[in-house]
Simulated scan of single mutants.
Amino acid sequence: MKRFEYVTVPLLTHATKQILDNWGQDGWELVSVIPGPNPEQLVAYMKREKQ
C-alpha cells in the first residue's frame, strides 16, 4: 500500500511558480491551493510518496 506525507506551503502571489517548482524538484505534488490569511498570500497543500 502506498503511503504519503503532506505539507502546507505558504505561497506569495509574485513568486508562486518559483516556489512550486522548488518543491516539485523535491518530489512534492500540488494537491490544492486555498486563500491565505491576506490577499498577497495563498496556501498550497502538497503530497509525496513516503520512501
Rank of each mutant, 00 (worst) to 15 (best):
M46K: 03
W23N: 00
E40N: 13
I19K: 08
V33L: 04
M1P: 15
Q41E: 12
Y6C: 02
V9M: 04
T8M: 07
Q51P: 12
Y45D: 04
K2N: 13
K47H: 07
T16G: 10
M46S: 03
L12H: 12
G27C: 05
D21R: 07
A15K: 15
M1R: 14
T8Q: 11
L11A: 05
N22T: 09
H14M: 11
M46W: 01
G36Y: 00
P39E: 07
K47A: 06
E29H: 08
L42M: 14
L11F: 05
V31T: 08
R48V: 04
K2H: 10
E40F: 09
T16F: 07
L42Q: 13
Q18K: 14
T13M: 15
W28C: 01
G24H: 06
I34L: 11
K17W: 06
N22Q: 15
K17N: 12
G24R: 03
E49M: 10
N38F: 02
A15Q: 13
L30C: 09
N38L: 02
P35C: 00
L12D: 14
Y6W: 05
P39L: 04
E49H: 06
Q41T: 15
Q25V: 10
N22I: 09
L30P: 08
G24V: 07
Y45E: 05
N22C: 11
K2T: 12
Q18R: 13
G36I: 03
Y45V: 03
N38W: 02
N38P: 06
Q18E: 12
I34C: 06
R48P: 01
P37C: 03
Q25R: 14
I34D: 06
W28E: 00
V33A: 04
Q41M: 14
N38E: 05
K17E: 14
L30M: 10
P10Y: 04
L42W: 11
A15L: 15
W28G: 00
H14Q: 13
V9Y: 01
N38Q: 05
Q25G: 14
L20V: 01
N38Y: 03
E5C: 10
A44R: 00
W28Y: 05
L30H: 07
Y45P: 01
W23P: 00
L20M: 01
Q25C: 08
L11N: 04
Y6M: 05
T16N: 12
M46D: 02
T16Y: 07
K2D: 14
M46R: 03
V43F: 00
Q25L: 14
Q18S: 15
T16Q: 14
M46Q: 04
G27V: 03
E49L: 10
V9W: 00
G36S: 04
D21V: 11
T8C: 08
V31A: 05
T8D: 09
L20W: 01
N22M: 10
Y6S: 06
D26A: 12
Q18M: 11
K50E: 09
E29M: 06
D26C: 09
Q18Y: 10
F4R: 11
L42N: 08
P10C: 08
P10I: 06
N22E: 13
A44E: 00
S32D: 15
P39W: 01
W28P: 00
N22H: 15
P10N: 12
